[in-house]
Design a protein around this nucleic acid. Sequence first.
DNA 1: GTCTATAAAAGGATAGAC
DNA 2: GTCTATCCTTTTATAGAC
Lengths: 205, 205
Amino acid sequence: MCPRSEQANAQVKDDRQKQILAAALRVFIHKGFAAAKMSDIATEAGISYGLMYHYFQSKDEIYAELVRDAVDSSKRAIERVRADDSEPIDKMRSLAQNIFKGVGKNQSAGYYFVLMMEAMTSGVYPARAALHSHNQERPLGLLVSVVEEGQHKGQIAAGDPTELVLTFFSAILGLASLKVSGTMTSMPDSEILMRIFQPASQKTT
Amino acid sequence: MCPRSEQANAQVKDDRQKQILAAALRVFIHKGFAAAKMSDIATEAGISYGLMYHYFQSKDEIYAELVRDAVDSSKRAIERVRADDSEPIDKMRSLAQNIFKGVGKNQSAGYYFVLMMEAMTSGVYPARAALHSHNQERPLGLLVSVVEEGQHKGQIAAGDPTELVLTFFSAILGLASLKVSGTMTSMPDSEILMRIFQPASQKTT
DNA sequence: GTCTATAAAAGGATAGAC
DNA sequence: GTCTATCCTTTTATAGAC
């Protein structure tokens, strides 16, 4: 009953939740929502099956929580590059490099991006719900204006900026999928993808 | 008992199998293997649940069969462009255009490509089995030499050709996923992706 | 060949001991 | 807080009537 221990317990509880979420992220990324079993997540987290339900109400809840985190994380990363004063093309480059590095090293920052993209395409209900609870503008939408500015400055090829952003990130998604599945052992040079932005008749420099 | 009717029955049987496979392809593409239910496929095919098992032994068998077909189809498409006498860069372009057109129009030729790529990344057992039963060299491997030739001719940027091929097709995979899921209403211009091959300081022409 | 009804298995969720 | 054992829903697969 002493307040100290209660606070400590709250800390333990929070740690466990994070531990479960981290394990679930890995499992969901590798198997997808439907194929991921609660028992897989429990094993990956190194705890018993039943304990999962002490911290989360359902598989859906875990997934929705992760998608929210993924969107937040992606959004923060995007806001960060938007805020700094580099050139538009370098903002896109920096974003790509961060994701490539994260995916290459199996870090959750990289996994978050993959999860967010999969949530967009999967049609899984809890994903849709989590995506829409953030009714604020979608993360990738924040990049359209960056691309537009880059086009005005002649750094980025002409064309519908939304289409360009989607093409760029779906390409990253495809690469990340191959990497995560082990089909590809390491991520390629991110400059290959940067060529998507490259105006036809002009050097990058 | 008359031979004529038996042959006609064989034809009906074959038609039904194709009908089920076509329905299954659509369902698998939209929901993924694990989330796809046999009842979904039956409904999509417009037949009863039980009848599925008259033509196939299991969900795994249907999936494996589709993956085999997808690999064959992709391989034939690749062999076809390899055989014709156009420039290497135009061979890649023609391949991309075909896939883009197929995915854009929801044709099975486009779906086959998506299925094949997903089979590579999914880790689903029947997919792996179907992929390995074709122990012959993998479809995308056939393109490495095309890219190499394009590099010698200065049409394609330098760099590991395998990496380039994988990057190119994983980008297509990502785009196709967005299209199939409805996140993207139409496929972008395939020339955007062709820039992946573009040497840095040179016009395509 | 085709369907409906049922069995069998898998996986999500809960209960209760410790 | 943590685990084991059990329940219950969902889905795969089979049986048997027509």
